[in-house]
């Protein structure tokens, strides 16, 4: 090997090592924080709602979607429900949809709750907590706003009131 080729061999070895190192660190550390982030495409899922209908997130393209995770046992979830219902009624005709994913509860408990709060939006039942795991949901309630292109625009942990909901929903309403 002459000097020139040796130098290039060394550079290539170096480059490979540095790339491997960087990639390893990136992968290993990004894996745990792989919570869906703002700007990313919302991971797709398919669930059965309380009414027995199948919903798939990717079929909501073209609509503004609020993905909400909740449980009847979670007090802040109870407080935000009336606001969600109100906003739903107001914007439903303008291309807005709510998917209020219930986390592994019995049909009867959820059904009673929905009646009590007069909820009309679809309630997908995440019986095996698969979607919760997919979205790495921590505290409840958690809301994810998804625009008509399927991109995440907001990730909110904690209850929302009507004015906040107005703000976030107006950001993502499909333009006519």
């Amino acid at each position: 090997m002459n000097k020139e080729t040796r130098m290039w061999v060394r550079r290539i070895i170096f480059l490979v090592l540095i790339i491997a190192l960087g990639f390893a660190i990136y992968q290993a550390t990004s894996k745990q924080t792989k919570k869906p982030q703002v700007g990313e495409e919302a991971p797709d899922f398919k669930l059965t709602t309380l009414d027995g209908k199948e919903v798939q997130l990717s079929e909501m393209r073209g609509k503004a979607v609020m993905l909400n995770f909740w449980g009847t046992w979670c007090p802040p979830c109870r407080t935000e429900m009336p606001a969600m219902q109100k906003i739903y009624e107001k914007y439903k005709s303008k291309g807005f949809e709510i998917l209020a994913v219930n986390i592994a509860e019995t049909d009867i408990a959820v059904s009673n709750f929905a009646h009590q709060y007069k909820l009309t939006f679809p309630i997908p039942m995440d019986r095996n907590k698969e979607v919760v795991r997919l979205y790495k949901i921590g505290p409840l309630p958690s809301s994810i706003f998804i625009d008509a292109q399927g991109k995440i625009t907001q990730v909110i942990e904690g209850p929302l009131d009507t004015s906040q909901l107005e703000l976030y929903v107006n950001q993502i309403l499909p333009r006519k």
């Binding site: 046992w73 509860e105 019995t106 049909d107 009867i108 408990a109 059904s111 009673n112």
Partner: peptide, 26 residues
Amino acid sequence: NLREIKPDQVYRVADLEIRALEYYPD
């Protein structure tokens, strides 16, 4: 079955129909 109660689930005992109306686990 505590994990799976459908709304308006009916249990039968003798000639009685027992319907679950509400359920609170905790």
